[in-house]
Structure formats: C-alpha cells, structure tokens
C-alpha cells in the first residue's frame, strides 16, 4: 500500500528532530484557525507548500495531486456555506427549487472563500508533518508528549500490521476479480462481503502466530523502543521562530491596509 507517509523516508529533513517538525506544522495550523484571516491562509499555504516541496523531494504535480485528496469533502462542505436557505435583500444570485429559495450573498461568498483557503492551508500544514516525519519518529515525539505507553505500543503494532493485512486484502481482491467477482452490483456486494470476512478470519489466525513469535522472544507485556539519534537542523529551528512572526505580520498588514477583506 502506498501511503502519504512513505514520502517521509525520502525527505531531506527526515532525520531532524520530530518534535521540531511537528511544531513547525502545528504552530501555523493553530494560527490559521485562531486568526481566521484570508491573507494568512494564502501565506501559509504558499509557504508550507514551498517548504514541503523543497525539503520533501516531491514533484509539484504529485504535491498538487495530494492536495486534491480532500476535494470531495471540501466541495460538499463548502456548498452549504455558499448558499443560504432564507432569501435576503442583498443577494447576488439565487436558484428557486420548488418552494425553496437558495441564494447567495456577498457575505456567503466571502465566508465560503475564507473557509476554503483556511481548510487548504491547514491541510498544507498537516501535509508538511506527514511528508517529513516517519511514523516511527511521530511515535517518538508522542512519547515525549507523555502519551500513555499502552497506546503507543498499540499504535506501533497497528501501523505495522496495516501493511501486512493490506497485502492480504490485495491478494484476495485480485483473485476475486480474476474470476469476475465484481462484474455487477450484486456480485460486488457478495464478493466484497466475502473479502472482508476472509480478511477478518485471516487476521484472527495471524493473531495466534504473532503472539507465539512475540512470546518466543521474551514478550512480557511491554514493547521497548530504541531511540534514534536526530540531526540538529539550524535552518528549521530558525524558520520555526520566524514563521509565527511572519504570520502575525501578514495578519496585521491585512487589518491595517486591506481591512475590506
């Protein structure tokens, strides 16, 4: 299975300290939501996009494609904000459906645009983390944040077996397709159900063997982890301090000069 996180292994900053990278993504993320400003959104989206593109060794086309992933939700989520049900005097345009009137005002469009920009720039922040920090490093950072050990062990395990089970899933899926398991809606429902059930029974079977394998290496209910040595990254540290300053500056500029937004 190809996941977004796989790009983290090719990132130029994959060995930088994970907490640093998380903060680098999280601080702008929080600021976007708090400041609620269009220009901050545009600024963060561009800045994060650029940083991810430069450090991530990922093509622009691929990055844009990744940005399109939440598109369905975005469209479904924006439409209700773009239109209002009750008619208004300052409406720009409207559609009459039966007894209902859907109309859009300047205010609606402004809100929708703001939400769109905010959401996309927030996504770019999360992507920065996902595309630069490997799962193992994220778990390490979570350990520093005092997330309970049990949850971390559970996560380490789940993460590993996602790939194992997905492989099993793909094998069954191909085998079903090879015998026309998905030729129409009815066979698709049955095949899909069978696939999930088979996967479940396989999962359970695996459980016994995995447990034996753990036990034979002295498992006693705890999963120890080795810490990696992380590289110091001065450029990242400096930008981490500068980015909030820039964001606030952009925000103040907007309030001062472009208050009409």
């Amino acid at each position: 299975m190809k996941t977004m996180n796989d790009y983290a292994y090719q990132s130029a900053i994959k060995n930088a300290h994970p907490t640093l990278k998380i903060l680098f993504g999280a601080i702008p993320l929080v600021l976007i939501l708090l400041l609620n400003s269009l220009s901050v959104g545009v600024f963060v989206l561009t800045a994060m996009g650029a940083v991810t593109w430069i450090t991530g060794r990922i093509t622009i086309g691929k990055y844009l494609k990744l940005l399109m992933i939440p598109l369905t939700f975005l469209i479904l989520g924006i439409i209700p904000i773009l239109f209002q049900v009750s008619s208004s005097d300052d409406m720009l345009f409207g559609i009459r459906i039966g007894n209902f009137m859907l109309c859009s005002t300047r205010e609606n469009i402004k809100n929708a645009l703001l939400l769109l920009v905010k959401a996309m720039s927030a996504v770019s922040c999360t992507y920065f983390i996902a595309l630069s920090t490997t799962m193992n490093d994220l778990l390490y950072a979570m350990k520093q944040m005092k997330v309970p050990k049990m949850i971390l062990s559970l996560m380490e395990f789940i993460y590993r077996y996602i790939f194992v089970l997905f492989e099993e899933y793909s094998k069954i899926f191909v085998a079903q397709r090879a015998r026309l398991g998905y030729k129409n809606f009815r066979t698709s429902v049955v095949s899909c159900g069978q696939l999930i059930a088979a996967l479940f029974i396989k999962t359970y079977d695996k459980c016994g063997r995995v447990y034996h394998a753990l036990e034979s290496r002295g498992y006693s209910g705890e999963i120890p982890t080795l810490e990696k040595d992380y590289e110091k990254n001065a450029a990242l540290q400096v930008s981490l301090c500068l980015i909030p300053v820039f964001i606030i500056a952009v925000y103040l500029l907007e309030k001062r000069w472009a208050y009409w937004i």
Binding site: I158, R160, T203, L214
Partner: peptide, 10 residues
C-alpha cells in the same frame, strides 16, 4: 493486546 492491535489494523 495482540488481538486488539490486529483488529485495529483490520
């Protein structure tokens, strides 16, 4: 524990 972890992956 192993059971729940595998179920999570599932």
């Amino acid at each position: 524990f192993v059971l729940l972890a595998l179920c999570g992956a599932f």
